[in-house]
Design a protein around this nucleic acid. Structure first.
Lengths: 255, 255
DNA sequence: CGAATCCTTGAGTAATTTCAAGACTGGTGG
DNA sequence: CCACCAGTCTTGAAATTACTCAAGGATTCG
């Protein structure tokens, strides 16, 4: 049921030029000539299954990855042994950029469902960048975007109630799914509530209660991992709004 | 010993080659030839006073900045009108990278004390990068480091008590001051408790009480903005909460 | 010196976590 | 095909933490 146009995400090709994700991914705004150069170093890896590691924390850094299908979570191990999920990554998004500075991956990357990725060996990318400045500049732009995203995450976690955090992340997924040709209002969350709570800084019990409250307020319908956003304006108001009074139309911040 | 080499931070020069901050800043690990090229586009701006804007949110993005002396905070305006402080920046650190992707500054940058910066026009930097790949690569490395920092911030804010957050940020400043040739144990925080609390997601009252608790536990001495870290092992233990047995940690009083 | 801002302290409140237990789910092997 | 298992999710009640509100004291800066 639900899930219109799921096929879109599978319509990737073996080259970047014709890839559905091109505009979302590294090739965005590259010249055709540069895209062709990039293609030559990109490697397709065989799909990985749910729970498999794309790379582990502490492993040597050799490549960045673009998600092609499925979804990937990244997480770091805290000193006390806990795991902290640093992000959820959908097709077109680039993973591993935080490892460039240290030559080792600070985070692990784990498939949340069967997923495939494009592997971009970093040495090759840097070498290529010397001859194709547009490529290097695009990498910088992608990283800048990533920085904005991370700052958004930090804001999400700062002095916001459980309801606000959940509302904000659901709207965030809504927008990201919409950018990928899927429905903005009905979608399936790829992660468990445990993981989502971990990311949002909330325990599972709170997640459960908060989902229920949003449903009671008629902002959402929930069926397992299937989410149906019923009242987007009100959800937006809750997530980012000032006073608890509802009503005002959409507003779009955050990425 | 107390406050060794305070002078270090003032010993910047009008070129990057001889700048004390070189290793912390954009020129780090650049070839001398590249540093000389970089110098040609770097502009020194006259010092700005406490409270002055280096740039405001929404302003067009034209340059990135390296802090030379003093300290700068960056903050973004939330939809509800609140301000959220996204970071505090010390000499050698680069500001404005999150604006590259959007051509506008998402954040404002405000001097926390009289400060001076080096301005690096971004168009010039990109143009130069086409001829000096090492420079472009260094920019990527700096941005990767920034990504790691941001992820650390997100972790700081996730499911950590007020004491843990404060302990962690104090240790963070301690390390950054030490990297700049200052004392790791005694330093002066450049920001108000209000701002620090804003960054940590805590109200001023909680900041005040938490500072006092750390002092009562004999981890710190506080005199206004002057901080003296008395028991670094215990503070570290508190901040990163290792499992009871793993590692050493001198002692742990704490109920 | 005075105004403004910042900081502190106390008491009460609201939110989320913790603890405990049971229900549901998806995948596996018999 | 079913039963079972482990992990996930839900629910309730109690405990804890940080927040709000209120007010007084301390600093800073012009």
């Amino acid at each position: 049921m639900s899930l219109p146009r799921v096929a879109a995400l599978n319509e990737t090709r073996d080259n970047c030029r014709d890839c559905r994700l091109r505009e979302l991914c590294l090739p965005d705004s590259l010249s055709n000539a540069d895209v062709i150069k990039l293609e030559k170093i990109v490697q397709r890896r065989k799909p990985i299954s749910r729970g498999d590691y794309l790379f582990q924390a502490g492993h040597p850094f050799t490549a960045i990855y673009a998600v092609r299908t499925g979804s990937i979570k990244t997480s770091s191990l805290l000193a006390n042994g806990d795991e902290h999920i640093t992000g959820f990554h959908l097709p077109g998004e680039v993973i591993g950029l935080e490892a460039i500075t240290s030559d080792r991956h600070p985070n692990a990357a784990i498939a949340m469902e069967t997923s495939s990725v494009c592997e971009i060996p970093f040495h090759s990318l840097e070498a290529l960048g010397e001859k194709a400045p547009g490529l290097q500049q695009q990498l910088v732009r992608i990283m800048s975007r990533e920085l904005v995203t991370e700052q958004g995450t930090a804001q999400l976690l700062t002095r916001r109630s459980a309801e606000q955090r959940l509302a904000a992340i659901l709207l965030n997924f809504s927008e990201r799914f919409a950018n990928r040709g899927l429905s903005a209002s009905r979608f399936r969350l790829p992660m468990s509530r445990l993981d989502l709570g971990n990311y949002l800084g909330l325990v599972p019990e709170t997640m459960s209660r908060t989902f229920r409250r949003l449903e009671e307020q008629k902002l959402l319908n929930i069926a397992g991992k299937e989410i149906n956003i019923v009242d987007k304006p009100a959800l937006t108001e809750l997530a980012y709004g000032a006073a608890p009074d509802v009503g005002s139309a959409s507003r779009s911040r955050h990425a």
